[in-house]
Design a protein around this nucleic acid. Sequence first.
DNA 1: GATCGGCCCTGCCCGC
DNA 2: TGCGGGCAGGGCCGAT
Length: 289
Amino acid sequence: MPELPEAEVVRSGLHRWVVGRTVEQVTILGDRTLRRYPGNAAEFADRLRNRRFTGAHRRGKFLWLTVDSGDDALAVHLGMSGQLVLPQGGGDGSHHMRARLTFTDGGLPLHFLDQRTFGWLTLEPLVAGVGGRLVTESAARIAPDPFEAGFDDAVAARRLRQTTRQLKAALLDQHLISGIGNIYADEALWRARKHWATPANRLTPKAARDLIGYARDVMSESLAAGGTSFDSLYVNVNGQSGYFSRDLNVYGRQNEPCPRCGTAIVRESFANRSSFRCPRCQRRPRASA
DNA sequence: GATCGGCCCTGCCCGC
DNA sequence: TGCGGGCAGGGCCGAT
């Protein structure tokens, strides 16, 4: 499931393998792929044809490729099962293919695969964001991620402490801090010894800064391992999976011993998804402050 | 405005 | 073997 580290691995691959190439043809296969694009598939393809990609960028889980026209970018969100791959041999090979871009150099095409169809492509204008950085409109609506130059730990910690929401909901809110998904939220909370239901406004300033630091640490470590992968749903542009799943402390480790205290990890339901924690290290907060 | 819950969607897994 | 239900979860939207 692509979160920030996985998106960064993909961005890096796009930078290496796609930037500098000129689009020859665009084929859209999925009805939902362009659901955020106001026009139709033919118009979308026309606007990309003969355009050269000039850069690969990311904020949180949002990716975009700038083009030589300068005013628009190809924006991509991988959802929970999206992949951007350059298939060896250039063939199809997957009935999950939602879009295909070929290039004038005759090299490997770029395929957008998406099993669960939560991902999307669109063309968006670039707007000035934090620090004057040009970002897509959709990326401008979310907060900077912890790896951006414009990210301020103190500001993020203050915003975190201004909400009464449960800590995990706040961490997952891309408008507060972008890039954190279900896996890294659980891992950061474990490192911080915080229960997911703790009201965010109950954190001390130091605890809020520490939590953000833990989130950055765990994502940084994941990035160094090439991302987290449990199955074939997440791969880099070369179709390879990451290795960080073996280093997770709580996520997906129900009934396994907590690496810190040995207590069995529990799985709980949180907002229609799973949450994993150590019941001893991460005790449920008192009902009221 | 802030918060919360439901929905979208497909494929895998498990129990019956 | 086949069927139904549960599960995975990022982002959006409507209700409160």
